[in-house]
């Protein structure tokens, strides 16, 4: 399903206000804004190195109010990897990931070969915690995906999150377009400005 291109598309899903945009902006721009603006849909591009090769990491920041099932389906079918974000301060936000996961499963057929990260964001807001780390881990085990708690605000685990996501791709599916292109191009890694470099 994913297009044969040099792009590697990561789609970020999650309920409204869990910090999807904050995570992405922290990763892409290294900043954190304390403003409160819902996202319609934004896409960020970042050049990364993949095994001595170049490819564009395209991160799609989706809207939290899962209003448009058609758009969600489109994002899923075009995406290579997925970050499912909830807020540790809201059990409801974890609940809302379930239909999204089911949707991914339905469109991709199987999630075995698809890198998926379950992310509990806002780990700095310990006082308001509603979802324990264990519960997040348990959910990740059930979904056979990786798990991490992050904080876009304090820049905790953000870079690691993307690193691990890309690492999952290496581990599980070597036949994806990135690999093919990489072998053909063989570009120098030192040209790259990407923050995320994967070994």
């Amino acid at each position: 399903m994913p297009e044969q291109s040099n792009d590697y598309r990561v789609v970020v899903f999650g309920a409204g206000g869990v910090g999807k945009s904050s995570l992405v902006l922290r990763f892409v721009k290294g900043t954190f804004r304390d403003t409160y603006i819902p996202t319609v849909e934004d896409t960020y591009r970042q050049v990364i190195s993949c095994d001595k090769s170049v490819c564009t990491l395209q991160i799609t920041d989706t809207t939290g109010s899962h209003q448009f099932p058609a758009m969600q389906r489109l994002s899923i079918s075009k995406g290579h990897a997925f970050i499912l974000v909830y807020s540790i301060t809201s059990r409801q936000s974890l609940e809302e990931l379930k239909p999204i996961y089911q949707q991914v499963l339905a469109i991709k057929g199987s999630t075995e070969s698809i890198p998926i990260m379950l992310v509990g964001n806002k780990s700095d807001e310990m006082a308001q915690r509603e979802v324990e780390t264990k519960e997040g881990e348990a959910q990740a085990t059930a979904w056979k995906c990786a798990f991490m708690e992050t904080s876009a605000k304090t820049n905790s685990n953000v870079k690691e999150l993307f690193q691990e996501l890309l690492a999952l791709e290496k581990k599980r599916d070597m036949s994806l377009s990135i690999d093919g292109k990489r072998s053909g191009k063989q570009k120098r890694a030192d040209k790259l400005k990407g923050k995320c470099s994967v070994m």
């Binding site: 409204g16 206000g17 409801q92 609940e95 809302e96």
Partner: peptide, 11 residues
């Protein structure tokens, strides 16, 4: 309530 209409309730 902060995020009125932005945040969603249980389906």
């Amino acid at each position: 309530e902060a995020g009125l209409y932005r945040l969603s309730g249980a389906d």
